[in-house]
Amino acid sequence: MAALEVQGLTKFYGSVPALQGVDLAVEEGEFFGLFGPNGAGKTTFLKVLTGQLAPTKGHARVLGIDVAERPLAVKEAVGIVPEVESPPSYLTSYEYLYFVCRVRKVADAEAKITRWLEFFDLGDVRRTICKDLSKGTRQKLMLAAAFIHEPKLLFLDEPFINLDPIYQRRLKDYLREYVDAGGTVLMCSHLLEIAEKLCDRVGILNAGRLIAQGALKDVRGGEKDLESAFLRLVEGRR
């Protein structure tokens, strides 16, 4: 069954096109990587799929929910890591996770908060207000906030940015386990090496259009790695 289905998705900011007729389907239990040069429309795509922005045209269903009609229901069902790590400035790390649990009506919140504080080694900063955390720590907190309600589908925008190699490894392992257990991930990233190890299928977005999609080896084609394929595909269009 498809975890998400997108048909002819188009988004304009005023007269500027950010997405132009994107078609995509991602199956449950799949790790899908979305790549593209800066300004290609990746973040806009994620924002439309998670109900943060209304599409100009086209249709998108996430876990069977129409994103244009029921954006809040989509946010309830999925986990989102935004491009910018921006937890609320004046809550402590613990309080932010508590807040997320309450808003999402998470059962057994205390145990889950403890689990994720431990997972990212946030015990030392549990009482530090978020504005005083380092970028990496804020990113860990945003990841914990996205995972804490155990959603079936994760939308991750540059999840590895600002994490040191220890936590990059920890996150990779977790995401692999998550997908193996039936979870679905749609991830935007510029880190092609990491993506190459994680993704089942990938898509390349350029100037708002999905110019390639498919299994990793198909998109790679005859190139030695995804980076070379990416450069060929994107630069070949310029």
Binding site: L72, E76, V81, P82, S86, P88, Y90, V103, M142
Partner: peptide
């Protein structure tokens, strides 16, 4: 004006 509200877009809040 107390704080940036961007993070709320990741939660089921309107």
């Amino acid at each position: 004006n107390v704080d940036n509200m961007d993070y709320m877009s990741t939660l089921p809040l309107s």
